[in-house]
Each structure stands twice: as structure tokens, then as C-alpha cells.
């Protein structure tokens, strides 16, 4: 266990104007985090696991119709509604400000699932299992979940720990902004995203590319949204869950809906 930690405040920026809905992030996450294979029944029973999912919304009518893609993953809320309701602290904020899930402890009440406004928590209704040979691929850094518990995006915490170990081994001391920028730590979905719609960084790092967006959105709260200088906003901002994710609005030259107040 890495003892000494630098004060990071991890965050992610999702640029909806870059995202093209290609699903690369979805598969990357499934591979990295030992997500159970979604067989046909998982979809028919609407129990499919996708820690990051691409929501597709229709807008307008043919032929002036658009499909909109929104990647939705755990928002790692500072003020996470899922945390206070867990009777066993199986989901909590860790030292790095991530909302993490302690599978061993979860007893499967599913209260956190109800109380997550973003629906990014997944319950293991069945025992996940893989064909013998496919088990060789499972990531040894990530616990394989059992039936009856809840799982969710962890910001790939196992990669964070590896990065810390790596940096320490390289004699670089602690994982810090420079070593981070050296590409030592990137969540699987961020790394995969071909359009660079997902950007990961440290809100405490003034040089971080995500910094200006967090500054802007933090400066002007939901009531002063229109004063913001960037396209940034938080999902369901009015709920005051204070997500560590910021979305950048899609730019729409010829909208099929006309001017939008935002």
C-alpha cells in the first residue's frame, strides 16, 4: 500500500463536441476492470454492466434529425448521495477524493444505486463467470466481483496505485503533476478515446488542461450559468452533488431546436 500521498483532486472533462459515440471507451473500461461479459440476457433484462456508457438521444424529426451522444460514468461527486446511504461504508470517498467501492464490504442493499442520480452503479444480479481460458485475461489488480454486490467506476484506482509505485521506483518520489503529465496515469477510457473527448487531470495542478474549465464552472454556479466563459457545466448541477466531472456542451451551428437559453 502506498503510504505517502500527494494531495490530488482528480477530475475529468468530457467534451461533447468531440465525442462521436464510437464506444471505444466502453470496451476499454470493460477490459481494464474485469467487467462481466454482457450476454444477450443482460440486455434483455436491462442489467448490462457499463461503468461508462454512451447515451444516445434523438432530437428533431427526419430529415432534420440529430443523434446526441453523452458518455456517462461515475461523476465522483464531492457531495455523493450514494455515500451517506450505505450502511457499511462500502462506498466512500478515499484520500484522493475518489468515490470508491469496497466490494468485500458491500452487502447488496442497492440503496446507493437508488440514490445515485446518474445511474452509474451496477448490481451483480447473477454470479459473473468467464470461460476457463478467458480468465487468463482478467486484470490481477482488480477484484473480480461476486453476485449480490454493487460495482462502479473507480477512476481506475488500480492504475493510480501502479503509477505511484512506478514513480516511486523510478526514484521520482511521489506521483506529482509532472510525473502525471508524463503519462504515468490515465484511466482506461481516457486513454482509449480516439477523439480525446475525455481529458483527465488534477484540479490542484494549475497547468492541468482541465483547470480552466473547473475554475470557470466553480466561479459561476448553476444560477449564473450564462455568465460562464467556457462551455462547461455539471450534469444535474442543480442537485448540488458537486461532481468531479465537467461536461463541455456540444456546439450546434444549425440546431434543429432553435436558440437554447443555456
Amino acid at each position: 500500500m502506498v503510504t505517502s500521498r500527494v494531495d490530488h483532486k482528480w477530475g475529468m472533462v468530457v467534451d461533447l463536441d468531440r465525442c462521436n459515440g464510437c464506444q471505444a471507451c466502453v470496451v476499454a473500461c470493460q477490459v481494464e476492470n474485469n467487467l462481466p461479459i454482457n450476454d444477450k440476457n443482460a440486455f434483455l433484462q436491462s442489467r448490462a454492466y457499463e461503468w461508462i456508457r454512451i447515451e444516445r438521444y434523438w432530437e428533431g424529426e427526419y430529415p432534420n434529425i440529430k443523434a446526441r451522444f453523452i458518455p456517462v460514468l461515475c461523476q465522483h461527486c464531492e457531495n455523493a448521495p450514494c455515500e451517506p446511504v450505505c450502511p457499511v461504508y462500502a462506498t466512500y470517498h478515499n484520500d484522493d477524493g475518489l468515490n470508491v467501492q469496497l466490494y468485500n464490504r458491500c452487502v447488496g442493499t442497492r440503496y446507493c444505486i437508488n440514490n445515485c442520480p446518474y445511474q452509474v452503479r451496477f448490481f451483480n444480479y447473477w454470479q459473473p463467470n468467464w470461460p476457463e481460458r478467458l480468465q487468463n485475461q482478467l486484470n490481477p489488480d482488480v477484484s473480480v466481483r461476486t453476485r449480490g454486490i454493487t460495482e462502479k467506476c473507480t477512476f481506475c484506482i488500480q492504475r493510480l496505485r501502479r503509477a505511484e509505485l512506478k514513480v516511486e521506483r523510478q526514484g521520482g518520489g511521489k506521483l506529482n503533476d509532472t510525473t502525471l503529465k508524463a503519462g504515468n496515469y490515465m484511466p482506461a477510457c481516457v486513454q482509449a478515446c480516439p477523439t480525446n473527448a475525455l481529458v483527465f487531470g488534477d484540479q490542484n495542478d494549475v497547468q492541468s488542461p482541465i483547470q480552466p474549465y473547473f475554475d470557470d464552472v466553480n466561479r459561476y454556479d448553476v444560477h449564473h450559468e450564462h455568465e460562464r466563459k467556457t462551455r462547461g457545466y455539471r450534469l444535474l448541477e442543480e442537485m448540488n452533488t458537486k461532481p468531479n466531472l465537467i461536461y463541455l456542451k456540444k456546439v450546434e451551428p444549425n440546431s434543429v431546436k432553435g436558440e437554447h437559453h443555456g
Binding site: Q45, S46, R47, G108, R110, I113, Q119, F122, F123, N124, Y125, W126, Q127, R147, G148
Partner: peptide, 9 residues
């Protein structure tokens, strides 16, 4: 497992 119920997401 609770898969035998009708619960879902």
C-alpha cells in the same frame, strides 16, 4: 443470486 427476481437497472 437476485437475478431470479424481476429487478433491474
Amino acid at each position: 443470486g437476485l437475478g431470479v427476481t424481476g429487478l433491474n437497472r
